[in-house]
């Protein structure tokens, strides 16, 4: 029951809605655009998996305001993000930083792609070996057959 209550409370504060409010927006459109860029990459720590721009939780609203304060005070985008990382940890970053903890995450897809390349190459190599073992056709003969096959298509 307690679990359910907590879940309901979480839902109640996290209903996705119009988040960024005109009242909190910066006058300078360039600065506001930067605030939006930063906000989209910061996780609302209360609502899972929403950026602070996408969440109407009170804390997200506060964080949006603090982001704008930092930007107005002259912080760079990275400094603003660092400001929140210092307080909430890497958890607030929707784009995880590249470090020892995330090295497998960032290199993983590349690793998959390389593995896919080698799997493909191994497949063709083995096929070639089997082909040589099975059909003692000369290169000329197989080229001839291919030509005939192509004509048929």
């Amino acid at each position: 029951m307690k679990r359910l209550m907590l879940a309901l409370m979480a839902l109640a504060i996290c209903s996705p809605a119009l988040a960024v409010d005109p009242g909190e927006m910066l006058k300078d459109p360039a600065l506001e655009a930067r605030a939006r860029d930063v906000g989209a990459e910061l996780r609302c720590v209360v609502c899972q998996n929403q950026s602070i721009d996408d969440s109407d939780a009170d804390l997200a609203k506060d964080l949006r305001q603090i982001v704008r304060e930092r930007i107005t005070a002259g912080d760079s985008n990275d400094q603003v993000k660092q400001y929140l990382v210092d307080r909430y940890g890497d958890y607030v970053l929707l784009r995880p930083p590249f470090n020892a903890k995330t090295v497998l995450l960032w290199l993983g897809p590349l690793g998959f792609a390389i593995a896919a390349f080698f799997i493909g190459r191994a497949y063709y190599r083995r096929q070639k070996q089997e082909a040589v073992a099975l059909s003692p056709l000369s290169a000329q003969e197989s080229a001839e057959i291919d030509r005939l096959m192509k004509d048929r298509n």
Binding site: D90, L94, T102
Partner: peptide, 23 residues
Amino acid sequence: LGTLYPLFVDALGGGKVSVGPPF
């Protein structure tokens, strides 16, 4: 990988990380 990575890190005692749309 991206979906499960927070679980991997947490299960290995590495704390919480977020993997969001930018990734």
